Simulated scan of single mutants.
Amino acid sequence: MTNVRTPQGRPSPTAGHPFLASTVPLAFAHRGGTASGLENTHAAFARAVGLGYRYLETDVHTTADGALVAFHDATLDRTTDGSGPIAALSWAEVSRARVGGREPVPLFADLLRAFPGVRWNIDVKTESALVPLLELLERESAWDRVCVGSFAEARVARARALAGPRLLTSLGTGGVLALRMRSYRLPWRLPAGAGCAQVPERHGRLRVVDRAFIAAAHARGLRVHVWTVNDPDRAAALLELGVDGIMTDRLEMLRDVFAAHGAWPPE
């Protein structure tokens, strides 16, 4: 297997934001790993950290009374024994729900404090969650520990405008499209300010991640993180291709693939 530690063409690990400072690709535990059915819970994240993961991916919503919770869906119904939209429920109501019938929905502040040695990739699911998240990062002096993203380009831009360069963000959907077009040598305008492109390997029939896309990103100082990769052959192929990070639900699988490529343990 090819050793992917500091391969030629990857942006310098010392350049840019501390979140990105690594000589090996980043291995992300997507929602803490979903195979157990306990996604986005303290238990899932603790298991990921116990396996050696130092980059965790999560999502944030706010309750009706402003509590910032780590949760993917807009409603409790799919993963918990509760029901209803989080935005319409109080924190007291949400806190009674149990993910997989076992684990409580966590406040993101509690997760941030519980795992001081890890970094967080945060998908801001609603506009109402953005300011509470930024206020939390300010209180906890946690700017170096997070990357913030959203499918909504305007939300990503607002995050950068409010927080300034201390906040690392990924490209929104429009920015990813612009980068794909630039990889075809088409003169699309790329939004300024992001530090990485976090993308699926494919979107429908369109292949997003290939050598041209990675080269276009690296030429502009952007890292490429790919989600959500649960097949070992695809993970290995992406490392060989030169991506800078992979998100997975299958934690042991990705750990083993990274180890085989000389990229484990993480730094």
Rank of each mutant, 00 (worst) to 15 (best):
Leu137Thr: 03
Ala159Leu: 07
Gly245Ser: 05
Ala259Cys: 00
Ala35Arg: 14
Ala178Leu: 02
Trp143Glu: 11
Arg234Leu: 15
Arg119Asn: 08
Ala237Asn: 02
Asp249Arg: 07
Glu127Val: 07
Gly221Pro: 04
Asp110Ser: 13
Val208Phe: 09
Ala259Gly: 07
Thr14Lys: 01
Met181Tyr: 08
Leu238Pro: 04
Ala88Thr: 15
Leu56Trp: 08
Phe213Lys: 04
Val24Asn: 05
Arg207Val: 13
Leu179Phe: 09
Ala64Thr: 12
Cys196Val: 14
Ile122Pro: 09
Asp77Gly: 05
Pro11His: 10
Ala212Ser: 14
Cys196Trp: 08
Pro11Asp: 03
Gly149Tyr: 04
Pro85Glu: 11
Gly117Lys: 01
Ile214Gly: 04
Pro106Asn: 05
Pro7Leu: 10
Ser128Ala: 15
Glu127Phe: 04
Ser141Trp: 03
Ala217Leu: 05
Leu206Glu: 12
Gly66Arg: 02
Arg234His: 13
Ala217Pro: 08
Leu56Pro: 12
Val131Trp: 06
Leu68Ala: 10
Asp210Met: 03
Arg98Ala: 03
Gly204Lys: 05
Gly33Asp: 07
Ala178Cys: 09
Pro18Gly: 06
Ala29Cys: 09
Tyr55Ser: 04
His61Lys: 01
Gly16Glu: 06
Leu107Arg: 15
Leu186Phe: 14
Leu133Gln: 05
Gly9Tyr: 02
Asp81Leu: 04
Asn40Gly: 12
Ser83Glu: 14
Arg5Gln: 11
Thr75Lys: 00
Glu201Cys: 06
Leu51Ile: 09
Leu51Phe: 05
Arg10Val: 09
Thr23Leu: 01
Thr2Gly: 03
Lys125Trp: 08
Gly33Cys: 06
Ala48Cys: 08
Glu140Pro: 00
Thr41Asp: 07
Pro7Asp: 12
Pro104Thr: 01
Pro200Ser: 09
Ala215Arg: 15
Arg220Gln: 15
Gly32Asn: 03
Thr6Glu: 11
Ser170Ile: 05
Thr173Asn: 07
Leu134His: 12
Leu111Met: 13
Arg78Pro: 07
Pro25Leu: 06
Val156Cys: 12
Asn40Met: 05
Thr14Gln: 09
Pro104Asn: 00
Gly221Asp: 06
